[in-house]
Amino acid sequence: MNRPNPASPRDDELIAAYLKGQTEAFGVLFQRYKNGIFFVVRNYFHNRERAEEVFQEVFLKLLERLDHFDGSGSFRGWFFTLCRNHCIDRLRQQARRHETPDSQWRHEDDDSQATPIARAANEAMPADERAYDRELAAHLEEAIQKLPDEQRETFLLKERGGLTFEEIAQMMGVSINTVKSRMRYALESLRRGLRHKPFVKEALR
């Protein structure tokens, strides 16, 4: 998650500027949140196409409701709650329509799923380093996928979304301590998952 630079404008300032007609302000806000939001959406929708669709819907919903953000709480918390609720709504609709569940996330073909920018950056790396990174990313995805739902969501909201424990607690309707312990369990599981992989040992040599 790209945490805002202290020198850069605050979220509420960007929103105010955008509502006054400065489109570029929204661009900054978008860059700040796009990856975090996308990751959270991907947590719910493992099919990339579907995730892209819902990702767009989340931002369109944000545009619709930006007027309603009163600035009393953090925008990040408000926005991620909006995102989470939208994802849950869409999943319910999907379940009602008896659609086939999303395929396992990102395992078909890494290259076809990566962004052009990431692909170009990937091409510039030495082959062995690239292979290591690919393997690491694949194992981590697998490990994240294996986490219990609450732990995975907490981990992604914290790590990708950059939300505070308090914001996550509010969003999920649990205490801060619960959130903290879920995060700890998630980290322990992920570390354990990576520790037993040969490529990690090799990299640490």
Binding site: N35, F39, F55, T115, A118, A137, R160
Partner: peptide, 13 residues
């Protein structure tokens, strides 16, 4: 690994 995932799995252009 998380940084790699973020790079390789951003939203499409």
């Amino acid at each position: 690994g998380m940084a790699l995932l973020a790079e390789s799995d951003g939203p499409s252009l």
